[in-house]
Simulated scan of single mutants.
Amino acid sequence: MKEIMALSDKIVTLKRNEFLKTSGSVDTNVYYIESGSLRISIFNDDSEQTIRLGYKGNLIVALDSFITGAPSHLAIQALKKSSIRVISKYQINAFLQTESNRILWSTLLESLIVQQFEREIDLLTESPLQRYKRVLQRSPQLFQEIPNKHIANYLRMSPETLSRLKKS
């Protein structure tokens, strides 16, 4: 991870609720969160759905746009004041010129794929309690870094349901 962070020569500071990327835009950067927290969401009609959450020490990316260079429906928004290292696709491609860096990058992508797969399992799990327990087991720090209303949205339950589950 330190090797990836070292690629960045640009740091962006976002205010609470400020967008790093808006829906419909192209974004070929990878972001390392130095402080704060962000969410990736998608807007559908009158609702929004959080599909990924990130906090200090996490990489976050609109992976579809990063890979294809095409506009993405995803938006990336700061949940609180955040400091983000920006790593461009050009910097990543230069980094990938050595075999050891390609292995590191492959490991990072594999981890991201596994996380996304676990997310899909969470969404297909019928019980809110099971979804809550799985996320708590995988990412206990999430509950210290991310406001409950966004965790509830991520888990596709009401904030009241999440509150009840946390108390029990």
Score class of each variant (00 low, 15 high):
F66V: 07
T13V: 15
P71A: 05
L38T: 05
K89L: 07
S47E: 11
D64V: 08
S23P: 06
I60K: 03
A94T: 14
R102E: 10
K56L: 06
K80N: 13
K56M: 11
E18R: 01
G54W: 00
T98S: 15
E34H: 04
Q97F: 13
L63C: 09
E110I: 12
L63N: 11
A78G: 11
F19M: 10
G57S: 05
A62T: 08
Q91N: 15
T98V: 11
N44M: 13
S37K: 00
L109R: 12
A75I: 07
E110R: 12
K80H: 14
G57W: 00
N93R: 12
Q77K: 14
L112A: 14
E18T: 08
I33T: 01
I33C: 00
N17S: 11
L104V: 03
I113D: 08
A62F: 04
E18V: 01
D64Q: 10
L74E: 15
S100H: 12
N29L: 05
Y55V: 06
T98Q: 09
I11F: 01
S23Q: 10
S100F: 09
N17F: 10
N93K: 12
E34Q: 10
I113P: 08
S41R: 07
I33M: 03
R85Q: 14
F19S: 13
L104F: 04
D27H: 03
T98L: 11
I11H: 03
V114L: 12
L63R: 14
T50P: 03
D45K: 15
Y32C: 03
K80D: 13
Q116K: 15
G36F: 05
V114Q: 06
P71E: 04
S111W: 06
G54K: 02
I51G: 08
V30P: 06
S23M: 05
E18F: 02
S47I: 13
T107M: 11
L59V: 07
Q49G: 09
L109Q: 15
L112D: 07
S106N: 15
E99G: 04
E18K: 05
T50M: 04
S111K: 13
L79W: 03
S83T: 14
L38C: 09
Y55M: 13
Y31W: 07
D9Q: 14
N101S: 04
L74M: 07
T28C: 09
G54D: 01
T107F: 08
A94H: 15
S41D: 07
D46W: 08
V86L: 11
L53M: 03
F19D: 12
V114W: 10
Q49C: 10
K21A: 13
F19H: 12
T68M: 02
I60C: 01
L79G: 01
L96C: 11
L38W: 05
L14F: 12
S72L: 04
L112V: 09
S47C: 05
A62W: 03
G36D: 01
K89Q: 07
I67D: 05
Y90G: 14
D9R: 15
I40E: 04
K81Q: 08
D45L: 14
Q77L: 07
W105C: 01
L53E: 03
W105E: 00
N44R: 12
L109F: 15
L79Q: 04
Q116R: 14
S72P: 03
L53P: 03
I40D: 07
I42M: 13
I33L: 10
